[in-house]
Design a protein around this nucleic acid. Structure first.
Length: 281
RNA sequence: GCGUCGGUGGCGGAGUGGUCAAUCGCAACAGGCUGUAAACCUGUCGGACAUAGUCCUACGAAGGUUCGAAUCCUUCCCGACGCA
């Protein structure tokens, strides 16, 4: 694991070749078909014959979630190991790693109808409802964060309350593929600020030269502006350019800044994961 | 050369006599998040001591008016546009 542009993909391939492994991508955006340049998706040549999983498994219009990832990855780990090969998880979506490690609360799937309903309420009202129905959870949540508030209500609607964290760990520790299995090797790549910024800028220049804008145009036509914004980073920023909301010259500096912000959030995740788990470098 | 409109914190851009260290956006920095996680959310953000708070330096420059000016007046410098 490591931040964007740190060289995870090629490193993972090296490890796979050394250990007779297969790679499970831990990347919330590379699951979508058609997001190639903007996600720096690995190419077939770069895979060097190593099987890669959880890439291009969804249409960009569809959604994917941490819960689905945990199920898919758990299944794949068993499957790969069952074939006598070494499963390697590689990617930058640290929340997915975290979810796989610590488990997710329950089997409460996304409920689009309920979400749509709750989306109509004011943030204040949402916070009040959570506070009323599950004070314990309300205390943990940011009362301004609508998305988390809605998810909490979704869980409450199905279970009555959001299960506390330690209870959750106990439950998930009964599952296969959990965190403290022996034999896990942790490899984190965490380059310095200077190095990472340089790598990000190099990548961006290359992405733009290789048709990033055209790719975003195609994705936009396929999924619309709302979805495009959700896809984030390149897709969101270039989308603004396509809608004439920003100039072409602003693209590179803005993307550079946004990607660095993203990398910083990833670095924060690494710090957190290192602190919480027995993750050693 | 004349005229008009402008010069505000790293950038953009509000404010047009006191409640202004100065709305807001961006950037920067720190952090949160139990199924949208590249999403979503929060805090800090002139300087110095530093919780509150106190002091200092600030709104192109220099003067002036006023109890009090980023806000009014004068001159100068710079920019855009118009007329020459």
């Amino acid at each position: 694991m490591g931040p964007t542009a740190s060289g995870k993909s090629s490193h993972a391939v090296e490890e796979a070749l050394k250990r007779n492994g297969e790679i499970i991508s831990v990347d919330s955006r590379q699951v979508y078909r058609g997001l190639d340049i903007g996600t720096e998706k690995i190419t077939v040549e770069e895979m060097r014959g190593v099987p890669h999983h959880l890439i291009d498994i969804r249409d960009a219009k569809e959604s994917y979630s941490a819960g689905e990832f945990v199920a898919d990855a758990t299944r794949l780990i068993a499957d790969i190991a069952g074939r006598g090969k070494f499963p390697i998880l590689a990617g930058g979506t640290h929340f997915y790693f975290n979810a796989l490690l610590h488990g997710l609360p329950t089997g409460v799937d996304a409920n689009p109808a309920l979400r749509e309903e709750l989306e109509k309420l004011s943030t204040e009202e949402l916070a009040a409802r959570v506070a009323q129905r599950d004070p314990r959870r309300a205390a943990e949540l940011d009362p301004q964060n609508r998305r988390r508030l809605i998810r909490a209500l979704e869980i409450i609607a199905s279970l009555g309350h959001v299960p506390p964290r330690d209870l959750l760990k106990r439950r998930t520790s009964q599952h296969p593929g959990r965190s403290d299995l022996p034999g896990i090797v942790w490899i984190t790549i965490d380059p310095s600020k200077e190095e990472l910024q340089t790598r990000i800028d190099t990548r961006l220049a290359s992405a733009l030269a290789h048709g990033l804008v055209d790719e975003v145009r195609r994705v936009r036509e396929a999924v619309g502006d709302t979805r495009l914004n959700e896809l984030g980073l390149e897709y969101k920023i270039v989308g603004e350019f396509l809608r004439n909301e920003r100039t072409e010259e602003s693209l590179l500096p803005t993307l550079s800044a946004k990607l660095w912000q993203y990398a910083r959030r990833q670095k924060a995740w690494l710090r957190k994961l290192k602190k919480e788990s027995t993750l050693q470098n």
